[in-house]
């Protein structure tokens, strides 16, 4: 099961460490939800998810202040005793002596941020959703062309990397070559990245490994991009029929999401970079509601004609 270490979260959100026990690498978060434990501080623990990060903001601290001292100690202690991964105070709220004591008793780290509660929790939930999303690695190339994330798939040696290089040379961006890590970050969104070890490297047969970022600069690469469109490259098969009009809606399924796709037959001498570029523009145009093939049909059958 995917998980994120508390260290990664502390570093990403630049959290202040108030109390620390053992290594933050050993505390793993595997749920994307974050709790503001208002009801729990009022003593209600039904349906409580103790594996979630707990965030205390203005409302919770104000509530705690109103409690009798004895109740306050008891409620805070009850929350820490449930085995929560950590407690975060937002808006730089003061860590009270009761909190520090319970944090020590149950060895639960106490952290703090200067951010407002709702903006902190929403960025944290978004971050966790990306990190904990279902994922898979695909053999292909991910590039960004005119703002569209295009995943090129195809057998080894069909020319994926060469196409990517040429597309980059034409001013677009490389995200990953050879191995793309794809995550399903929502029910309609796939996010692609390169594994860190091979990030922004490209292999061209006959030359070897190239560092695209060093060769063409930072404007030629990108850390991550959505997978909006899939292009399947395959060796031209004389017996197969290929799409001629562009009326069929082909899709490729990745992690349960159907991504619009096309299949492009490859023949020596076919300029794939231009084809990929025009496929991206055409995809944009289609998503904005214009379909050239449909417009042609309308013309042929006399609609909108003058």
């Amino acid at each position: 099961m995917a998980s994120v270490t508390l260290r990664t979260i502390i570093e990403t959100f630049d959290l202040e460490i108030i109390t620390e026990y053992g290594s933050f690498d050993d505390v793993r978060i595997s749920v994307a939800d974050v709790t503001r434990p208002g009801l729990q501080l009022a003593g209600h623990f039904e349906h409580f998810g103790p594996d979630r990060i707990q965030v205390l903001g203005n409302m919770e601290t104000a509530f705690l202040e109103k409690l009798e001292p004895a109740d306050r100690v008891e409620r805070i202690d009850a929350l820490f005793s449930k085995g929560i991964p950590c407690l975060v105070l937002s808006r730089n709220h003061t860590a009270t002596s009761e909190m520090i004591e319970s944090s020590r008793r149950y060895r639960v780290p106490l952290l703090r941020t200067s951010d407002a509660t709702s903006s902190f929790t929403s960025s944290l939930v978004k971050f966790l959703h990306v990190e904990l999303a279902p994922r898979m690695s695909l053999h292909g190339v991910l590039i960004e062309v005119y703002g569209e994330g295009i995943l090129i798939l195809g057998e080894s040696g069909v020319g994926k990397s060469e196409t990517a290089l040429e597309v980059v040379k034409r001013g677009h961006r490389l995200i990953a070559d050879d191995l793309v890590e794809v995550r399903r970050v929502s029910d309609s969104t796939l996010l692609g990245r390169a594994p860190e070890i091979i990030r922004h490297l490209i292999e061209i047969r006959g030359i070897g490994i190239l560092d695209v970022k060093e060769l063409y600069g930072v404007s030629s690469v990108k850390m991550q991009e959505n997978v909006d469109f899939v292009i399947n490259l395959e060796i031209w098969d004389e017996k197969k029929t290929y799409e001629r009009l562009g009326l069929n809606e082909e899709t490729t399924e990745i992690l349960g999401i159907h991504v619009p796709s096309i299949t492009i037959p490859v023949r020596p001498g076919r300029n794939l970079a231009i084809i990929v570029e025009v496929a991206a523009i055409n995809f944009r145009q289609k998503s904005m509601g214009y379909n050239a093939a449909r417009a042609l049909t309308d013309r042929v059958f006399g609609k909108n004609s003058h």
Partner: peptide, 14 residues
């Protein structure tokens, strides 16, 4: 949980 095409250098490196 990573799988790479054995014919791809960068994939195997990763």
């Amino acid at each position: 949980d990573r799988r790479a095409n054995a014919k791809s250098l960068l994939g195997v490196m990763s």
